[in-house]
Amino acid sequence: MEYSSLDDTLPLSTELSIESSMPPSMDMFQEQANQRERVKKIIVLHRGQILRELILVFSEENIMENDFHFQVILPDGKLENAVDDGGVMRDILSEFWNDFYEQCTMGNGFKVPYLRHDFGKQEWESVGRIITFGWQKEKYLPVKLSPVLLEQAVLGFVVSDLVDSFLKYVSESERVIFESCRSDFEGVDQEELLEIMDIHNCRRLPTADNFEQILKEIAHQKLIQEPAFVIEQWNNTLAPLRSELKGIAAVYEELQPTSRKIMRSMTYPSTQNAQEKQMVKYVSAYLRESDTQHLSLFLRFCTGSDLFTGKSITVSFTQLQGFQRRPVAHTCGCYLELPVSYDHYPDFRNEMNKVLDSNVWVMDIV
């Protein structure tokens, strides 16, 4: 699908409010001129097409100077019934980066962009602006990108351990072989090792003495050299983040969702009856047993962001029953409504998982 224009991007004139009792001054006239220059826009995107459309929006060099908010069109052509008070923006960032990981990167735990024939200088600069926008507006970073990649792009040098990042980039089977080589080189299946080294274009025979050096060289090639063009395009666009992101690895750690972080962010009614107290226990049990993927889905369901950005989640209880019974989230205000009609914890867990695993993210609360 081609995107040659942004006809759905609607400019809104900015209203100026100046006290009539104040005498005119040059400062006032300058302020009026500055406000007129900042045009407020509605950016309309289409669910399922956000990757391409957001890149097109941020291809404008001065896009960050504008004041704008988002609206989303559903696949059936209807407008999502939501006001962008932060929740829609967070949800758009989450969808964009999930699609970006799938379509524009290689790697396992950590991802690295790969060069596509349909992505040139303009597209990669646009992605860099989206990184800057996400951090400045919502403290959102694409934490699945290898941290050494962003360190090189933001700071101009690598801080994190290259080999550790590389071991999270490769597949699980390759990681097991590489770690075994580091601890007991002679005990590794040499034929399998050579096959893996050939996949990574290694042209030297690995030995117990040179394996660590070869591993560092391959890590540098995969994480720094191969995405060098992308890093170059991101370098200028990410410049505003240099003072804030001197410790990217620490920021990554803060953004990673954990059950403890989420439980601490949740606020319940001060007074609760027996059913409501039981629901609080169900939620805590659910979060404790959830894997990282479901913790991310839970956060996105409640806040719009699949990362832990420090948002407080306010919980209330409802009396929904039967076919109407379901958890309901209001992402703009980070509210979660939970029915109290579950007889057993497995019933709640099953229903919560169905909601999260449906992967249907529709902002339907104004």
Rank of each mutant, 00 (worst) to 15 (best):
E95V: 08
E95C: 14
W97D: 11
D99G: 09
F100V: 14
Y101H: 11
Y101R: 07
C104H: 05
C104M: 10
T105P: 11
M106D: 15
M106C: 14
N108L: 10
N108F: 13
G109F: 06
F110Q: 09
V112N: 06
P113Q: 04
P113G: 10
L115N: 03
L115P: 00
L115G: 06
R116L: 07
D118Y: 09
K121M: 05
E125C: 14
E125Y: 03
V127S: 09
I130L: 06
T132W: 08
T132D: 11
T132A: 15
E138P: 03
E138W: 00
K139M: 10
Y140L: 00
L141R: 02
L145H: 05
S146Y: 10
L150D: 12
E151L: 05
Q152T: 02
L155G: 04
L155A: 05
G156K: 13
F157P: 01
V159A: 07
V159W: 09
L162R: 13
V163C: 07
D164C: 06
S165E: 15
F166H: 06
F166W: 09
L167R: 06
L167C: 01
K168M: 00
Y169W: 14
Y169M: 11
Y169G: 06
E172P: 04
E172S: 09
S173H: 14
V176R: 03
V176H: 01
I177G: 05
E179A: 02
S183G: 07
S183R: 12
D184V: 13
F185N: 01
E186L: 14
E186V: 14
G187I: 08
D189P: 13
D189C: 13
